[in-house]
C-alpha cells in the first residue's frame, strides 16, 4: 500500500501592521511603469511542498506545525495553508 502524498502551499504574509518596504518600493516601480490605480501592494512568500502522510488530517497538522514554527515568524507574519491531494 502506498502512503498518500499531499501537496501543500503555505502563504506567508507580513502582518498588516508591519511596514513592508519592499512592497512600497514595488508599488513605486509599478507607477513608473505606468500602471496606475494600485492602492495596496504587499509582498509575501509562498512555500510549496509535498508530504507523505496517512491522511489529510495528519498532513495538515504536520504542515501547520512547520508553518507556525519554521516558515513564519508569528511576531511579524501570518500564514495560511492550502492542502491538495497529489
Amino acid at each position: 500500500m502506498t502512503v498518500p502524498r499531499f501537496q501543500a502551499r503555505v502563504l506567508v504574509r507580513l502582518r498588516p501592521s508591519v511596514l513592508d518596504p519592499a512592497g512600497e518600493a514595488a508599488r513605486g516601480a509599478a507607477a513608473r511603469l505606468g500602471v496606475e490605480g494600485i492602492s495596496k501592494l504587499r509582498i509575501g512568500k509562498a512555500v510549496e511542498l509535498e508530504i507523505e502522510a496517512a491522511d489529510a488530517a495528519e498532513a495538515r497538522s504536520r504542515v501547520e506545525l512547520l508553518s507556525d514554527r519554521l516558515f513564519a515568524n508569528p511576531v511579524i507574519e501570518d500564514w495560511s495553508l492550502e492542502l491538495l491531494d497529489s
Binding site: L14, V18, L19, P21, A22, A25, N73, V75, I76
Partner: peptide
Amino acid sequence: LTELGLLPGALTRNRDL
C-alpha cells in the same frame, strides 16, 4: 536570539531597504 525566543520582537527589513 529573537527567533530563538530568548529576546522578544523581531528584526525586519530596514525602512528604506
